[in-house]
Simulated scan of single mutants.
Amino acid sequence: MTIKKIITLRGSLIAAALALLCSTFLALPANAQAFDDCPAGQLCLYSASGGAGTKRTFAVQDNGQRYDASWDNATLSAKNNTTYWACVYVDTDYGGLLQTIKPGNSDEYGNDSRFAGTISSHKLVPSRAHCFTGYERCPDNRVCTFTEPAGRGAMTVHIPATDPATRNYGNAYGAEVAPASVWNRTRRHLCFYPTEKFTGTWSDPATPATKYGAYVVLKGDSTTVPSPFARTFRSHELVNGTSECQ
């Protein structure tokens, strides 16, 4: 074989290899560039898997406690293009099941029936631990009650009124509030009661003869309410000392 023929053969082999390589790149899935349209500093939610479909973008300070009807329960994939952790929830007000997304990562929900088309709220937070609480929504100098543990779920902000009998500040409310957790962001201690009359006791199911009076949350404290008190509060008052609880 002449030198010329060897060079020609080698050139043919190189050309064939390049053609194969190029065909490999051309055969990549259509979603190889998925999520590339998500701007820096944004959380992007998509209505289809792989960063396809309709896109919604949210800045770090734009925490979505609920979406409008056109977007609620529409998310099938997400890209967190921020330096914060993203938390997505299946219920409004940071409630229900949740998923977390690391900074810079994407996530898929289409193959998980718990999250596919069920996401209804989100927030962006400094650390993953913040995804599991929602107390930060409570304004200063207010009592806030939440329908789920750890400050998650629907929040009620209580603006105190004066109880005519005790002259203490407090509120009465119905079962629709159903507190499972509470933050006492006031400068007074907080006494909860099982009736709307700022009175009553609880019984321990394990020992029915054991009675409990007011459930106390000290000033500045937040807590998930344990059994048998959880979801049974119907009134509360703010007092200077816990001995003032009824």
Rank of each mutant, 00 (worst) to 15 (best):
L76F: 08
S77D: 04
S77L: 08
S77E: 06
S77K: 06
S77Y: 04
A78I: 13
A78D: 01
K79G: 07
K79Y: 11
K79L: 06
K79C: 14
N80V: 05
N81M: 10
N81A: 14
N81R: 12
N81S: 15
T82K: 06
T82Q: 10
T82S: 11
T83I: 11
T83Y: 03
T83K: 15
Y84P: 02
Y84Q: 15
W85N: 01
A86L: 09
A86R: 07
A86Q: 06
C87P: 08
C87A: 14
C87R: 00
V88H: 01
V88W: 05
V88D: 06
Y89L: 09
D91F: 07
D91H: 13
T92G: 12
T92M: 10
D93F: 13
D93E: 11
D93K: 06
Y94I: 00
Y94E: 03
Y94A: 00
Y94S: 03
G95H: 09
G95C: 12
G95M: 09
G95T: 10
G96S: 10
L97G: 15
L98D: 07
L98N: 08
Q99S: 14
I101Y: 05
I101P: 01
K102H: 07
K102Q: 11
K102R: 09
K102M: 05
P103V: 01
P103W: 00
P103S: 05
P103L: 03
G104H: 02
N105F: 11
N105E: 14
S106M: 01
D107H: 05
D107E: 14
E108F: 02
Y109P: 01
Y109D: 00
G110W: 03
G110V: 02
G110S: 13
N111E: 09
N111C: 01
D112G: 05
D112F: 06
D112V: 07
S113I: 10
R114P: 01
R114K: 13
R114M: 07
F115T: 10
F115H: 08
A116V: 00
A116P: 00
T118M: 11
T118A: 15
T118I: 00
I119K: 03
S120G: 05
S120N: 15
S121H: 03
H122S: 09
H122M: 05
H122F: 04
K123A: 04
L124D: 01
L124A: 03
L124N: 01
L124P: 02
V125F: 06
V125I: 14
P126L: 12
P126Y: 11
S127Q: 14
S127P: 02
S127M: 10
R128M: 15
A129W: 05
A129P: 03
H130F: 12
H130C: 04
C131M: 10
C131V: 09
F132N: 13
T133F: 02
T133Q: 15
T133M: 08
G134A: 10
G134H: 06
G134R: 11
G134P: 05
G134C: 07
G134F: 07
Y135L: 09
E136R: 07
R137N: 13
C138R: 06
P139G: 10
D140N: 12
D140A: 10
D140Y: 10
D140I: 13
